[in-house]
């Protein structure tokens, strides 16, 4: 299954600045494994050392939070959009006037 993955700003360093990438897999975990192959270091940002999705990372399949489906075992289908959204980090800075 080919899906579109929306990458949050703090992870775009790994994707060469891309905010949207394509990946494939039958469920969220497989999609993340695929991302790890293309963008090494990706997985360790999302998972804790004991293999659990870090609790401040929220992943959505389209509009649905995977916590309320089957966590990273949640199935994906062709054309789905997966959004990786961290908890709110604090303020940023100066914007060009």
């Amino acid at each position: 299954m080919a899906v579109n993955v929306r990458i949050p700003t703090p992870l775009q360093k790994l994707t060469g600045g891309k905010g949207d990438v394509t990946a494939s897999g039958g469920n969220v975990k497989e999609v993340i494994d695929h991302l790890e192959k293309n963008y090494p270091g990706f997985k360790e940002k999302l998972y804790s050392e004991d293999g659990e999705l870090r609790r401040f990372i929220n992943i959505y399949i389209n509009e649905e939070d995977i916590r309320f489906i089957d966590s990273d075992g949640s199935q994906v289908k062709d054309g789905d959009t997966i959004s990786i959204i961290p908890a709110i980090a604090g303020g940023s800075g100066k914007i060009q006037k």
Binding site: F56, P86, A89, G90
Partner: peptide
């Protein structure tokens, strides 16, 4: 310590635009 973190309200300066 990390750019992707869960400490609400705080920012990782190196990977952010610095406040004036």
């Amino acid at each position: 310590a990390e750019s992707l973190h869960g400490i609400e309200g705080l920012k990782h300066m190196e990977s952010s635009i610095v406040p004036g």
